[in-house]
């Protein structure tokens, strides 16, 4: 039996729309839940004070500061290395057998569970390199975890640059590096930055990689150097939810709200950069 095209159109539309709904509804519910339960504790004091009374009261300032430190340091470590590696792989070593092996390795690395990165960071940065449990060890661990995603998204951005741009530049006598610096990178940069920020915002919310490498259960003071431990929002949330009895529910939700808001800000930055450059784009 052949169905009426009008009916199949409706069925197809219904399934496509329902699938979209399945994605959107949880996001809305999470947001509502966080706002409903978290806004009650939200105040200037909550954002700027240290926890008190065994973390049952007070604010989450040290955790916010710790997460900001981790994000900034992770950007400093991961962004340059990731972008340079992506440029090497997609501009210089395109058909090399080594780059094919690295391809496979990167895809697989992106699938490694984050707790494994945490243990790796513990072994390499904390113990072997003797950084101790510190911000630098945590940021390096988060960097290693973000690199595969940053490299992959950067290579995609570089791949969208038409080959004719490269050949035109080379045909005028420009060297390969001049071509990359003057033509390829400026045009690929919005895509590279967007992908990188999304990877980093993912890393900012991770708990497992910082569990063994940096996060402190409770610190009464702020870190003084990058070789100090610090508190961090995802771990603080985990601690509140599982380790501290009788926490007022609002504190947990408030913490989660701050973490989500910070990640949202990062993602909005990525979006703003992308749309800013898209307006300037000439091809």
């Amino acid at each position: 039996m052949r169905l009426n095209p009008k009916i199949t159109e409706k069925i197809a539309f219904a399934f496509l729309f329902l699938s979209t709904l399945v994605i959107v509804v949880p996001v809305i519910l999470i947001t509502i839940e966080l706002l409903k339960n978290g806004m009650s504790v939200m105040s200037w004091k909550f954002l700027t004070e240290s926890p008190r009374m065994g973390m049952r009261a007070g604010g989450i300032f040290p955790a916010i500061v710790g997460t900001v430190y981790l994000i900034v340091l992770t950007i400093l470590f991961a962004l340059p290395v990731g972008i340079l590696a992506a440029i090497y792989l997609s501009e210089y070593a395109r058909d090399h057998w080594l780059s094919k092996i690295i391809d496979v390795a990167i895809v697989n690395l992106a699938g490694v569970p984050s707790v494994v990165y945490g243990l790796f960071g513990l072994g390499i940065f904390v113990t072997f390199l003797n950084f101790g449990t510190s911000i630098v060890a945590g940021a390096l661990t988060l960097s290693i975890m973000s690199l595969p995603v940053i490299i992959t998204s950067s290579r995609e951005a570089l791949g969208t640059i038409p080959e004719s741009f490269r050949e035109s530049s080379l045909a005028l006598g420009a060297t390969r590096w001049q071509t990359i610096r003057r033509i390829v990178i400026p045009n690929a940069l919005p895509g590279i930055i967007t992908g990188a920020i999304l990877a980093l915002s993912r890393a900012a919310g991770e708990t497992a990689p910082i569990l063994f490498t940096v996060a402190a259960f409770y610190l009464p003071h702020l870190p003084k150097t990058i070789f100090d431990q610090c508190m961090a929002l995802p771990y603080h949330l985990y601690v509140l939810a599982t380790q501290v009895p009788n926490v007022k529910a609002g504190v947990e939700y408030g913490t989660a709200l701050v973490l989500v808001a910070m990640i949202l800000i990062l993602n909005l930055m990525a979006g703003a950069i992308r749309s800013h450059f898209r307006k300037k784009k000439q091809w």
Binding site: S164, F165, E167, S168, S169, L170, A171, L172, G173, I183, N187, K281, Q282, W283
Partner: peptide
Amino acid sequence: RKRIGMIFALPTPLP
């Protein structure tokens, strides 16, 4: 490449 220039089949202005 500087001394021997090349014009391609499709116009390829740089962006």
